[in-house]
Design a protein around this nucleic acid. Sequence first.
RNA 1: GGGCGCGUAGCUCAGUGGGAGAGCGCUCGCUUCACACGCGAGAGGUCGCUGGUUCGAAACCAGCCGCGCCCACCA
Length: 718
Amino acid sequence: MPERRDLESRTRYEPAEVEPRIVRRWLDSGLFHPEPAGTAAENYSIAIPPPNVTGSLHMGHALNGAIQDVLIRHHRMRGQRTKWIFGTDHAGIATQTQVERRLLEEGTSREEIGREAFIRRAWEWREQYGSKIVNQFQRLGASADYEDERFTFDEAYVRAVMRVFVDLYEKGYIYRDRYIVNWDPGSRSAISDLEVAELEVDDVLYSIDYDLEGGGKVSVATVRPETMLADTAVAVNPQDERYRDLVGRTAVLPLVGRRLPVIADEYVKTDFGTGQLKITPGHDPNDFEIGRRHGLDVVTVIGEDGRMTAQAGERFAGLAVLEAREAVVEALEAEGRIAGREPHRHAVPFSHRSGKRIEPLVSLQWFMRMDELARPAIDAVESGRVRIHPEGQRQVYLDWMENIRPWCVSRQLWWGHQLPVWYRGEETYVQTTPPEGEGWERDPDVLDTWFSSALWPFATLGWPDDTPQLRAFYPTDMLSTARDILFLWVARMIMMGLEFAGDIPFEDVYVHSVIQAPDGRRMSKSLGTGIDPLDEIETHGADAVRFGLLAMSSTQDVRYSAEKIEQGEALANKLWNASRLILLGVDDAARPGPRPRTAEDRWILGRLIEARAHTYLSIDGFDFSRTALGLYSFVYGELCDWYLELVKPRLYEEDPDLSATLLYVLRETLALAHPVIPFVTEEIWSYLPEATDLLAGWRPDEPDRSLRDLDAEREVER
RNA sequence: GGGCGCGUAGCUCAGUGGGAGAGCGCUCGCUUCACACGCGAGAGGUCGCUGGUUCGAAACCAGCCGCGCCCACCA
């Protein structure tokens, strides 16, 4: 039990000294680990967006951690059984890349050591570095259930993933197809549409003449001349008067000599280029679709290694794509077929994962049909069972879901959930356990990381078993996340939750701000605009960082504001010193209790009720900047600047009623502020009389009163 | 091309029909028995532009200018 006298010398609040000590007390207390009991309706739970196991805490984590922790601590202190489901994601490509980089440094490679050894290395990596991000969340003060930590490669979790895959396969949603995919030469894997980002690029638009059999020619435009080697048709628009008589004729592909039918397809724009389009089903997504419509051959001249294949002909085979482009242009020029070239700026797909330019390739992959699963997930949002905040994001979700496309779920990686699929000759076997008999070979591919993430809210609770955890905490209450994974993750959780856990995974989705650099640019390591939240925590304290991030957040993106962090730091110190004044000034025997004797006593008690109503309402409304700034204004502007200044003379006169009132106001203020600034409030709490337990587990006297009561009380005060 | 959002004090932002505000910064003063991460006072804005609705507009509507983000299959 700390001695109050010790406060005399501690004239400044020192977060660096206090906070690690408090973290240890919290973790030792078991407060963050609820026993599963009761129903999800009466309990409160949030599943954390699982950080990458290789990651370290960035500003987005810090803000989202602060948001979730405010909600979690708020509900815990209002007496609800509260669980913040915590864990990490195996993060397929990100982790694999890290491990591969290390192997490279050792002068070897994943191919050289083989799959089994590689997986072992990845696990070692995880053992070594996986706890980093966990410690960082603890340093932030996140009151998650670390005793029940999950990993998407936990045995039980893997079982859930396999079960879902097999089930979807048996329902006919998952299928295998030879289809054009986004091939990422960087990670040497297919990736999904959502992992592709378009960037503006300056290219040259070449016009190339193809002869027509029986005389005449067509002129096609392309920024990728090297793909002409894989052309299998030329297309015009059926409405295009100019070319109506060309349809049905045959063009001859230069350099190759292949005969190309001239076809008619609505896709061709009459007002772009010449209105004559080369069709390359093997290397262009649109052309692939056109090819399917017209039954065209698919020729592949670019391989998965980004080099020209034997199909490209011996002049070009083996060349990298860009080398081939030059070589093809040169060869065409020699034949006098380059009819024109002009600069052309356009959007080009790049891999979000590796940064490499996407190579659309036809490849045998596993896909998941989404439209049927999307329907109930659309209903859930349209009916308001799932609410998305801010409102503007709701329509974005619905638009995307209405136009949802199949999801390529297979990845040519090693670090991931290997498909529960076996082949023997023409046979395919899909089950959670390997088939009987000889000669079966397992599909080497693994699942997209987001496939397992989609199960997060229920697979973490023991699904598919009917566990007490699942009954107590599913559905969760809310999900807090960044906008960029609304489709990648949130939409899929809603679909999977409805399909497999039988209910929506959460009632509210809160899409938080993206914190930009102070100059408005993206925070990024490569731009050098990143600010490390841990540095900020070291300098200003976790309370200050939490307060600052919450105070600067809003329903849109915001610039990082060092001033708001400093404001939080000032608040912590102010509260600390106000507490010193009270604790060192009141009678030793005094106990907290509202015993107003003067007008200012009644006034501050009224303001306290007002502040509580404001805090509760703003938290429930996900308006966290109001929560933070409201606390600041109550503590600074009302409690300290007015009330404490007014009562100082009485305090020195040893007024027992005042002592009781001061202790009461302090206790209630600490409880009110605790969800936002948990450290300083917990530290002060330890000096309060009767405060044997932790503030984090304390429940104010009337926690269950509804907000309506608070409002009514507020009216009375007026 | 479509969608969402933003433009209010030097900076970062709140404010949605009737008083133009907060934090930081700035100026002046005070204080050192809770706190200089302190206390008090103050300066500073034609609320992007234009038009409309209204007794009344920073707020509602339309257009324009500027900026950001998301989605999208024009080679």
